[in-house]
Amino acid sequence: MPVRTPHFPDLLFDAAVRLRRWEGALMALLDAHGYRELHPSLVLREPVPEGVLRFFDGDDLVALRWDFTVALAGLLARRFPEPPDRVAYAGAVFRRPVQPWEAVERFEVGCERIQPAEEPSAEADVELARLLMAVPQALGLKHAILHLGHAALVRRPLEAEQLPPDLAKAVVAALSRRAAHRVREALADHPAARRLTAHAEALLADLDGPDTLKALDASPYADLLAEERAHMDRALRALLPILPDRLDLRVDLADVAGLDFYTGPTLRLWAPGAQQELAAGGRYDHLFPELARPWQAAGFCVRLSRLLDLAGTRPDLFEQP
């Protein structure tokens, strides 16, 4: 059989040491904040989506764990009548690569904050953002950028306009490219074309700092999104005074990555010059109700495989241990 590196990378000495060190540092950070580890099985026996690694175990079709959040949700819904409020995880997930440079085996560390549906969630969102703000120091990253977004800024106007799924998908794809002109092209002569294009232009306005939220003034959906805006404003007020020196905080109103999963605030961690985000997360309140549990949840995942790649190509971004 041909060896298909880099899809199946072997970690040699320095990278293996780095992985263990980072896993240890991040799990210690999460433990110090009350997040207790759960370890869902690597082999899953449940319906699996496209893109995961599947194989037959005798007559049974099984799959390797492809996503910690989904695997943990299954475990929690099966085993816990009441949710543990804070859980952490570390290990590998396996997915078929979408891009040619992506590995199949991906190492991750992450955490989830779970609450009964009726509890207020704003404090949990800020707690997770504060925790993610501590991650660059734990990893020895010299500088990082934290992007705050909110899935509802795009989701709610699309729902309000009752766009057909294909058209909504085209608008989201255009926003993912940060291309307001593509939103206009996609909507063509749809009755909501003018409103949604103006909204896309507002989301993509080139502002910086706390003023970024003012861009929403220009949106036809400003009133519809008042609650989300207030939520982001409160989060910024809580986070900016405690921002570590090595971290920039930016508001990314047009963040649509994972829009079919996230329902509320989103978090993404970048390093200057990195080609992919190093950590990502947000609020996903639909997951547990789909498993018949009246719980809400948010979390983030640190993508250690991407960090290992970055340490190999840009060692200057990291402190020497």
């Binding site: 950028i145 940060r178 990314d252 970048w270 200057p272 010059g273 080609q275």
Partner: peptide, 9 residues
């Protein structure tokens, strides 16, 4: 633009 370059720098 490259997503990483545009968003991180």
């Amino acid at each position: 633009a490259a997503r990483g370059a545009a968003l991180s720098e």
